[in-house]
């Protein structure tokens, strides 16, 4: 159950309303994450500005969704996995690509390098090894792309942590289960697959 109130767009102060209206015109709906974040117009503005600026970076919308799925899985965020499975589909990811992203991989070598580096950044809090960076560079990621991976991780951590704290009610179709417990577990750091 939601632990912070969801703010209805018609009831909020002007600043929050402007922001929620902008979300609506972009997505055609106002998802619960935005309504719950609207408890603080400054934080919602921060989240939307962060997301908006990164959408102008070099990563395509599907690749940004792949990162979101990999990070959401790593942090165990059900809301985020539901939302990004839906948006991922909208921007052209197949069901298999969505699952691969959640497992921290991709078929395309460059996307694979991006998704893997994103997972390493989450798992190591940025303290990745020289070899992690060498692998990313060999796959063609320059400093600009590496920088964008980190920023996209930060954006998704925002949503992950926030949704956990808020207990945001899921208003997207539930994410598909990964094939079995062991597989889901292997895609998730710290999980005991024998449990």
């Amino acid at each position: 159950m939601s632990r912070t109130p969801a703010i209805a767009p018609e009831s909020v102060v002007r600043k929050a309303k402007v922001l929620l209206d902008a979300v609506k015109s972009k997505l055609g709906m106002v998802p619960n994450i935005a309504r719950a974040m609207a408890n603080s117009p400054a934080a919602l503005d921060g989240y939307l500005s962060l997301s908006g600026a990164l959408s102008q970076g070099e990563f395509s919308p599907p690749l940004r969704e792949q990162i979101a799925l990999a990070v959401g899985q790593a942090n165990g965020c059900h809301y985020c996995l539901a939302a990004h499975s839906a948006v991922g589909k909208m921007v052209g990811l197949t069901a298999e690509q969505i699952k691969d992203s959640r497992r921290g991989t991709a078929v395309d070598p460059r996307s694979d390098a991006v998704v893997r580096l994103a997972r390493r950044v989450v798992d190591q809090r940025g303290l990745v090894t020289d070899s992690d960076l060498a692998i990313a560079r060999q796959a063609g990621l320059h400093d600009s792309a590496i920088t964008e991976v980190v920023a996209n991780v930060a954006l998704n951590i925002f949503a992950n942590y926030f949704n956990h704290v808020a207990g945001t009610d899921i208003d997207f179709p539930k994410a598909e289960p990964l094939d079995d417990h062991r597989e889901a577990c292997e895609a998730t750091p710290g999980c005991d697959s024998n449990r």
């Binding site: 109130p5 408890n39 603080s40 400054a42 940025g126 951590i157 942590y161 926030f162």
Partner: peptide, 25 residues
């Protein structure tokens, strides 16, 4: 702390993580 302020504490953590992760990388 109100709900709005709790959201802001989370946002401050994330802004911290942003620079932490990047400067660590």
């Amino acid at each position: 702390f109100s709900d709005g302020e709790i959201v802001e504490i989370v946002a401050s953590i994330v802004l911290g993580c942003f620079t932490n992760f990047l400067n660590n990388v």
